[in-house]
Nucleic acid binder design. Structure first.
Length: 861
DNA sequence: GTGGTCGATATTTTT
DNA sequence: TATCGACCAC
């Protein structure tokens, strides 16, 4: 099989070989196949190249921030394929987030070499595990069409178990139990493996409840996120023959962000890499910030022991940030003891120093940042270029810090986007809609049924629900069946009865319309062990296979729901359409309409309602990319795609955690105060380990910046409504003085910001010397600000008025704001409005951010 | 079964 | 200070 290789064609065209050469080449190609181009190696630096070319055996790539990690990884994939070491299909590439997986796919597409087929086993630990578990579900007592529960489902389930166990839910919240179970699963502990001491936590019932929970999941034919991995680890451990097949299949394994792996993931990898040991892990111990979530930095620190003879390659040349920014980051991270050691460097020489500034309070800080952003955006900052708002990010330690910025930006009319809030699929309306889809797709999905039985209101309360649950349990059937019996036997009365009866009829009708029940051929080589590799006893039986096919769990690669009669569809066997079937998109709309769910939000007057309807529309739109509801549900269970098509330039506000892996020309790092950052709680709960993780967070924050990094802190901050005076963070003392400019605080009622004056460090400071909070506290600007503050009294921020154009509202107008809802205009001051919101109180806003009440739903951000 | 009030509570977050 | 959940009154 010869394939056209673009690179070769390109080279041939450029070098213009003679006809005879061409003929020779043709002959050679016919005999040996086209010579493979390794152009992707050309723009790698020596370290990257070394990492790419070390194909065999265990390799650890220690890739500092901004050192071309993804590029290197993808060049490695290219190299594996070009050197015929593996086919696309035999490479397992694992990431943590879908975003990272997607980025790899994109990157791979841009790598100069040509794929013969897609690299299919590239995805998150969870999505790959789900794919594997669907094949082998029966080995852990599940059916292949199991449901993947999210955190919310889990908590509701645990609540039931806790109250059934007669435990006071108040003292022992389900959340806490969920956290414990999760951490057990993160450590690959099945109930029987949990140690006695730990298991008797949670009022002595910890493990018992864990075991009960697992049983319940099995009867529900459901798994939680942790199970996806844990079940696979258990399967691999119990079935060495099966494991051996996968070991043989996945010839090369690549792992991204290895420092974030937990024990279960580590075992998962170790098992799969156990045969050939061709495992290449990329990571940065300095960016391990998920210890609290079960990540074990130990995994990366121990790599060489786990895989003797491992090759370790360090990527230290940074292509992202200026030298000052790198110096600051290096200087801070040097404070950590447990490190593999790495020093970032750059060939760049130019750049602004890291800016450090103290403010009087949090609002002042937000005000200053707002003004800075306007200046940067306007291009009026000396020595600096003009920036798009998209170039600018504010990275905070805790999400509550975002508020000050949101409030401020709202009132000066600076567009921003908050990343990280509730994820799309976590929103109430999305989950409700999904629950409808779930019950229709799987009539036994009790949790889904429970969720929607009274949404919208059908007069079904706790009592009615309980009756149904009892009926279902005593008959050993699903809730839906139980409900049917309860209706038939007259156990339900009045409203509840008619409501439930209607719902049951609806669900059955929708379900009958749910399709399409296409049988589509699984593409050749899509999965290991089709035909040739599959051992006879492991072959999925025809029955089971048809389950997959019917519900479309191979849906990602499946053909369109109603394939047109094109040639390739000749592969589709046995296409059976029921003429009564409607497409899944229409069905979804039908369900939401007929259930009254859409109407419920249309009649809702709360500020969120229009947004929720909007989200539902997006949900429907998202369906277009799938062939059927089942395939879609799988996607949503595992993916948080929050990329709602945003319009216009916006400043990004997000947490430091959320910023890992991203980069911005301009970064603001506010709130560097003891207790807040480093977080007091982190230090209290995890001591030095906690502090080191906080420090790594600081490192991550600084290294996000390409051109300009501004660190700030406030002397006073409102914490839970109480004013507290704050001390500048110890991390500030760890900044290298020669790479930092101390800016003059504008101070209380300062209004005008003084021009960027570089604070001259005392002559005795050497290159290695650290900056100090004292530099700020002793700066003339700080003293001036303190004086003013003392004269003015309590800490509070001035309100500046920006006179921007337009908007015509009259006193008393009813208006709508996306965040605050409906309200009435009470005051007008230029283009600024004071609005008394029905629910959110009185706010001052720029007129551009509200619309007349009758145009709700069409508000700028 | 719904709506209101009161009190406890308060990082970081992916799948 | 703000939010969420539980409990109580209609």
């Amino acid at each position: 099989m010869s394939s056209f290789n673009e690179d070769d064609a390109f080279e041939a065209a450029v070098s213009r070989p003679s006809l005879s050469q061409l003929a020779m080449q043709g002959a050679r190609e016919a005999a040996f196949g086209a010579p493979k181009s390794t152009k992707y190696l050309d723009d790698l630096n020596p370290a990257q190249r070394e990492a790419v070319e070390a194909l065999e055996g265990p390799v650890l790539i220690l890739a500092g921030a901004g050192t071309g990690k993804t590029k290197t990884l993808m060049a490695r994939v290219a190299h594996l394929i070009t050197t015929d070491s593996a086919r696309e299909n035999e490479i397992l590439a694992v990431t943590f987030t879908n975003k990272a997986a997607k980025e790899m796919q994109d990157r791979l597409r841009r790598t100069p070499f040509s794929l013969n087929e897609p690299v299919r086993w590239m995805g998150t630990f969870h999505s790959i595990s789900a794919k594997l578990l669907r094949r082998h579900a029966e080995l852990v007592g599940l059916k292949s069409n199991f449901t993947i529960l999210d955190t919310d489902d889990t908590i509701r389930l645990l609540k039931q178990l806790i109250s059934a166990a007669g435990i006071d839910e108040k003292r022992w919240p389900a959340r806490q139990l969920a956290g414990m179970i999760d951490s057990w699963k993160n450590r690959a502990l099945t109930p029987s493996a949990v140690s006695g001491g730990e298991g008797s936590e949670f009022n002595g019932m910890g493990v018992k409840l864990y075991a009960q929970y697992q049983e319940r999941l099995l009867t529900l034919n459901a798994v939680d996120f942790g199970d996806l991995l844990l079940h696979m680890v258990v399967i691999f451990q119990k079935h060495p023959d099966l494991l051996a097949q996968y070991q043989r299949w996945f010839k090369y394994i690549l792992v991204d962000e290895y420092q974030d792996t937990n024990v279960a993931q580590y075992l998962w990898l170790r098992l799969l890499a156990g045969g050939h040991k061709n495992i290449c892990c990329v990571g940065d111990d300095d960016q391990s910030i998920y210890g609290w979530r079960g990540a074990e930095v130990g995994n990366i620190l121990r790599f060489e022991k786990d895989f003797p003879g491992a090759k370790v390659v360090r990527l230290e040349q940074n292509y992202r940030s200026t030298p000052h920014i790198l110096a600051a980051a290096s200087s801070v991270i040097a404070g950590n003891k447990d490190r593999l050691g790495k020093e970032l460097w750059t060939s760049e020489t130019e750049g602004e120093k890291v800016r450090l500034i103290g403010h009087w309070d949090g609002e002042e800080e937000a005000r200053w940042v707002g003004e800075e952003i306007e200046a940067l955006h306007g291009g009026t900052r000396a020595r600096l270029r003009k920036y798009s708002l998209d170039d600018i990010a504010i990275l905070v330690r805790a999400s509550h810090q975002m508020r000050a910025f949101e409030d401020r930006f709202l009132s000066i009319g600076l567009p921003y986007r908050v990343i990280g809030g509730p994820r799309f699929y976590e929103r109430m309306e999305i989950r409700d809609a999904m629950a409808y889809f779930r019950i229709v797709t799987q009539l036994e999905d009790d949790l889904a049924f429970e969720r929607i039985i009274n949404t919208p209101k059908r007069g079904v309360g706790d009592k009615a629900l309980q009756d149904i649950q009892i009926t279902a349990r005593s008959n050993g059937v699903s809730l839906l069946e139980g409900a049917k019996i309860a209706v038939d036997e007259g156990l339900l009365k009045g409203k509840a009865r008619s409501g439930v009866a209607q719902l049951i009829a609806d669900i059955e009708r929708w379900s009958s319309l749910n399709g399409p029940r296409i049988r589509y051929a699984v593409e050749e080589d899509d999965e290991p062990f089709e035909e040739d590799v599959l051992f006879e006893d492991e072959r999925t039986s025809d029955d089971e296979l048809s389950v997959f096919e019917d519900i479309g769990y191979f849906g990602e690669r499946a053909r369109p729901a109603r394939p047109k009669l094109e040639e390739e569809d000749a592969l589709v066997e046995d296409v059976a359409y029921d003429p009564a079937e409607i497409g899944h998109i229409e069905l979804a709309e039908k369900i939401l309409d007929e259930s009254g769910y859409t109407a419920m939000w249309q009649n809702d007057k709360s500020p969120e309602a229009p947004g929720r309807l909007e989200n539902l529309k997006e949900l429907i739109k998202a369906l277009e990319q799938f062939d059927n509801l089942a395939g879609f549900l799988e996607h949503v269970a595992l993916i948080m795609d929050n990329d709602s098509g945003e319009d216009g330039e916006k400043v990004t506000i997000m947490t430091l955690h959320g910023a890992k892996g991203l980069e911005f020309p301009v970064v603001f790092l506010p709130g560097w105060e003891e207790g807040l950052f480093p977080s007091q709680r982190s230090m209290d709960e995890n001591g030095t380990k906690g502090l080191e993780e906080e420090r790594r967070l600081a490192y991550v924050g600084i290294t996000r910046a390409e051109e300009l990094c501004t660190i700030s802190f406030a002397a006073n901050r409102r914490v839970y409504g109480q004013w507290q005076s704050q001390l500048a963070s110890r991390f500030i003392d760890e900044l290298p003085v020669d790479h930092v400019d101390v800016e003059t605080p504008s101070g209380l009622y300062g209004g005008q910001r003084s021009p960027a004056t570089s604070y001259e460090a005392s002559p005795s400071t050497s290159f290695e010397q650290r900056a100090s909070k004292a530099d700020v506290y002793n700066s003339p600007g700080w003293k001036r600000m303190q004086d003013r503050a003392q004269r003015a009294g309590s800490p509070r921020s001035p309100v500046t008025i920006d006179m921007k154009a337009n908007a015509s509202f009259t006193l008393g107008d009813r208006v709508f704001h996306k965040k605050f809802g409906y309200g009435e205009v009470m005051e007008i001051e230029g283009d600024k409005l004071a609005i008394e919101f029905d629910r959110a109180g009185t706010k001052k806003l720029v007129a551009g951010f509200v619309v007349p009440a009758d145009q709700a739903g069409d508000v700028p951000f």
